[in-house]
Nucleic acid binder design. Structure first.
Lengths: 269, 269
DNA sequence: TTGCTCCTCACGTCACGTGAGGTGGC
DNA sequence: TTGCTCCTCACGTCACGTGAGGTGGC
């Protein structure tokens, strides 16, 4: 025996605003059990309250409306839990991103910003195992972590060791357009069986301008200023070498070399 | 000697997309140092890189563009730090909200949802100290915590004790419209000097339907269903009594009574 | 000359919020 | 009869993203 509630009453019970309830009706997320054909008044049933509460909680957690729909349409508790767990994972990742942004903000604001020394280096072509693909700007962090983990796990699984510093190659578009090609690699020396996303590649030789820094944004800024000042050309794809990276060091102890390919050698410097 | 960079180059150096840079130009957040009057090409200076990085980091932390502007316009490091600290505080609060939503989601989904007993009670008018005001939906949590803290601090500061359970009165509009009047109170017995936001009030007598629950959303739902089923009328303002509340207990151990004023006594129940 | 980069509209997205202007129910 | 509740447009918000269609520079 389920009584009916007007929007206002349902709003007070569920703590969803009237505007929000109308919106959820419009997009089909939460439809009133009955609508008076003459007045268009919406009437909700008391047994819709639990559903409304789940919706509110999921929206409080910033789950997109489309996914909330999927959760409600789930056939069993297992599927529903999986969808929710997936979202909680995403929240966790965002939290990590926020933490990283706070740290980086500190390193951008606090120190007196002494310029790091910029060097040049010619690197030969190397054989390596790599993971590559098209990546969205916002996913780079997670993708990068996963890919590096997979590469080193592959080596360990075959009792091998890296023959050089782990690195990455990133298309300029990844930053200028918000999505683009990315690759991370670990140099090897010998035969490796490729599994999963891991493949064999040859990282081409290059003439690079290099700056070394603990904070990656500061490094990009300094290198960019240098390259522009020397009119070398700021085209990608850029490279990164993780001298002390996630395979063996704590985040606070990382050291990354940022490298920019040099197309026109500047005789004057 | 600061070199100039095209949007594309500046984008690759700062990791802001071209679209974003154009948008920041349009809203006056980050204006290129020069714009070619013939071609409308934007040109940035290398000394704009640090500023772009600060902007990116603050936006990564979801600081609204208007506030980022304020940070950049700050006259000194103290003012700037204060603005950033304020935002970090907000982030912390959101994090708290997320944590609470996760907990509540669990309590809505997991248990088999046995209905809590609903009782009725007539409460007499009581003298109390209170904090009240117009509150936004999203700020209720923080406002509530602060207000209760202030009330109990006031009592302690004057060597007094509460004469009853701490409670709150919330206008229906707060939920149906997203903003409305809210009040929290602590019953007293004797004279109290009012300071800060604290004032003396008389909480009116009322006939209440009451449900007791550890999770506040579940409680609201059950009470709402009951009141609607008995056709008592679901008008506000609603009341809450914090039987075990934040003044003396850990969040996991809280117990709240949710009370709805009854306008029309239902003889049948 | 051919790509490549850059440009300006104009509109879309997401999840609602904000009025305006009007009608039904106790 | 008077408020109060509820209704439907239509447009606004925020921070960009997505094309379309076109032009300048090496």
């Amino acid at each position: 025996m389920s009584a009916r509630l007007s929007v206002g009453d349902f709003s007070r019970v569920t703590h969803l605003t009237i505007k929000t309830l109308r919106h959820y009706h419009e997009v089909g997320l939460l439809e009133p059990k009955a609508v008076d054909p003459a007045t268009s008044y919406r009437y909700y049933a008391t047994d819709q309250i639990p559903q409304a509460q789940v919706i509110r909680r999921l929206r409080d957690l910033d789950m997109p409306v489309a996914e909330v729909k999927a959760v409600l349409a789930a056939h069993d508790a297992t599927e529903r839990s999986a969808l929710i767990a997936k979202h909680l994972d995403r929240l966790e990742m965002e939290l990590e991103r926020t933490r990283a942004a706070v740290d980086s903000l500190r390193s951008i604001l606090e120190p007196p910003r002494s310029a790091s020394p910029i060097s040049r280096r010619t690197v030969p072509a190397v054989r390596a195992i790599a993971v590559q693909g098209l990546v969205q700007r916002g996913d780079v962090g997670a993708w990068w972590h996963g890919a590096i983990g997979e590469l080193h796990a592959t080596l360990r699984g075959q009792g091998m060791r890296a023959a050089g510093v782990t690195g990455g190659v990133f298309d300029g578009e990844l930053f200028s357009e918000g999505h683009g090609h990315a690759m991370v690699f670990v140099p090897i020396d010998g035969a490796v069986k490729t599994v999963g996303r891991v493949e064999l590649v040859t990282v081409p030789a290059a003439e690079l301008a290099i700056v070394e820094h603990a904070d990656i944004d500061v490094a990009y800024g300094e290198l960019g200023a240098y390259v522009a000042a020397h009119e070398i050309g700021v085209d990608g794809p850029g490279r990164e070498y993780y001298v002390r990276g996630p395979e063996a060091h704590e985040p606070g102890d990382w050291l990354t070399e940022i490298a920019w390919p040099i197309f026109r050698a500047d005789a004057g410097s």
